[in-house]
């Protein structure tokens, strides 16, 4: 079913921008990070696709590949099918176009990703930390995050520091 979606997308965006993987439990489409916003607009409003519902957006950190992968779960009420999009950005300076203008709810997920993984979404209306305090240092879901021993004069470990 997703392969049908893939063929429609390839007709519009060309073969070199999209890669299709069906060896996993959920087949997914690997997307070029520059095209993510155009692709989302197309997937939402194209009458054959109509992916009107935004499920979730999450990020995965791959230090060995030196990249952060964004995973988009979309659902089409018309086709009753889910579609998974993946796109990767560099770990050093992760920047990606926001899709808040396509699905309003995605703005919250993007703020969470900025908070925990440090991905900077351009054209976002309010790019601030969502869960952690504003003065937090670092992005804790990165694999190389090291917890400081104090936060605001509170010890962060059970072992007494002398």
């Amino acid at each position: 079913m997703i392969s049908k979606v893939y063929t429609i997308l390839v007709d519009r965006f060309g073969e070199d921008a999209l890669l299709y993987f069906d060896d996993t439990l959920n087949p997914y489409i690997q997307v070029n990070p520059e095209q993510i916003q155009m692709l989302c607009i197309f997937m939402r409003y194209n009458p054959a696709l109509k992916f009107s519902f935004f499920f979730s957006l999450c990020g995965v950190d791959y230090p060995e590949k030196n990249q952060i992968t964004m995973v988009y779960h979309l659902f089409s009420m018309k086709q009753k099918k889910m579609c998974v999009l993946k796109t990767s950005v560099s770990r050093k300076n992760p920047e990606l176009e926001s899709i808040e203008s396509v699905w309003k709810a995605a703005g919250w997920f993007e703020r969470e990703l900025y908070d925990l993984l440090g991905v900077n979404f351009t054209n976002h209306s309010n790019m601030k930390r969502l869960l952690l305090p504003d003065d937090w240092v670092g992005h804790p879901l990165r694999k190389d995050y090291e917890e400081p021993s104090f936060y605001h004069d509170m010890e962060t470990s059970r072992n007494r520091i002398s």
């Binding site: 869960l131 804790p140 917890e147 509170m154 010890e155 470990s157 059970r158």
Partner: peptide, 13 residues
């Protein structure tokens, strides 16, 4: 207690 955001016991404060 292995989380980055949780205080390890309220007796710390």
């Amino acid at each position: 207690q292995n989380s980055y955001s949780v205080l390890k016991g309220v007796d710390k404060v």
